[in-house]
């Protein structure tokens, strides 16, 4: 009895320790960005100061620099626009491709799927050279449209592979049933497979969007003008001048860009994890 209670308390404590350690670890970058955003540069650079608190009163000067003297809002808008377009293109290509590979190509589907995924592993640092020719040929250099063309080259393979996993988990009999019930294969795909794999599709959307926001090599090599920059390149390029780091503004830029994505992730967390097909089969 005594030992049992001790054991319960012990496991409670252990659980909380793990939770707290991870929470602190994961929240710390956000805290650091937040505090640095509002810290005076003098406060930041004085090594005797406690770095975790405000030693001098907070300031808005970094935000003023970010919004007043760089095209930060324009970069956010560019990135969001490219993100939405690339997500759309990715879904249009990857959904039917993944479905066809899982259901219609028989035993070749899986190897081809893996083959497609392998192209995702070719590093952009190699690919940007031939792709720059493509971009030049299409006359898209120095516009956001260059990356709109290039990004699907890695988002589509990854998404196809991801979606194949989701489609495979849908029992085949469900589609058979839908076709007997009066849908064509395309109808069954749109009205049955897509709604059932909603969690997979959402995962693809968020993954694709994240890949677009964090991509660096293509955005750096294909686009130069400040007004056409993507967030990932604009921020380090224009807020690091020579060896001068505008830490406050850098952190502000990162914080503003990452919070919406973090919220989005948390909002759909259940959907990612949800065993969505539970109850479909006995």
């Amino acid at each position: 009895m005594q030992r049992g209670m001790l054991h319960t308390i012990g496991s409670h404590v252990a659980r909380w320790v793990v939770v707290i350690v991870f929470a602190v670890l994961l929240a710390f970058p956000f805290y650091w960005m937040l505090i640095t955003t509002f810290k005076k540069t003098a406060d930041l650079y004085t090594l005797e100061n406690n770095p975790f608190i405000f030693n001098l009163p907070p300031t808005l000067e970094h935000l003023r620099l970010l919004f007043g003297q760089t095209a930060y809002l324009r970069w956010v808008a560019n990135t969001a626009l490219v993100g939405v377009i690339v997500v759309t293109i990715t879904l249009i290509l990857a959904l039917p491709a993944a479905y066809a590979l899982t259901r219609l190509t028989g035993r070749w589907g899986q190897p081809i799927g893996i083959g497609i995924f392998l192209t995702y592993l070719v590093p952009p640092t190699l690919l940007f050279i031939p792709l720059s020719r493509v971009v030049a040929l299409l006359n898209l250099q120095d516009t956001i449209w260059s990356v709109v063309v290039v990004y699907p080259s890695f988002t589509v393979p990854f998404s196809v592979w991801l979606l194949m996993g989701f489609f495979k988990s849908i029992p085949r009999e469900l589609e058979d049933a839908a076709m007997v019930d009066g849908l064509s294969r395309l109808g069954a795909f749109i009205k049955l497979v897509v709604p059932i794999s909603l969690s997979g599709i959402l995962t693809v959307v968020i993954f694709t969007f994240t890949l677009v926001t964090q991509e660096f090599v293509y955005a750096l090599t294909f686009i130069s003008p400040e007004s056409q920059q993507m967030l990932g390149v604009g921020v380090p390029t224009f807020l690091v001048r020579g060896d001068v780091y505008y830490w406050g503004s850098l952190m502000a830029a990162c914080l503003i860009a990452s919070v919406p994505i973090a919220i989005l992730y948390n909002l759909f967390l259940d959907r990612f994890i949800a065993g969505f097909t539970v109850g479909a089969v006995k």
Partner: peptide, 20 residues
Amino acid sequence: LTPRERRIAMVFQSYALYPH
């Protein structure tokens, strides 16, 4: 004819109820 044009109904081993 496609399955839907045959006007048949089928009950599957797994019942294949639409989970959503």
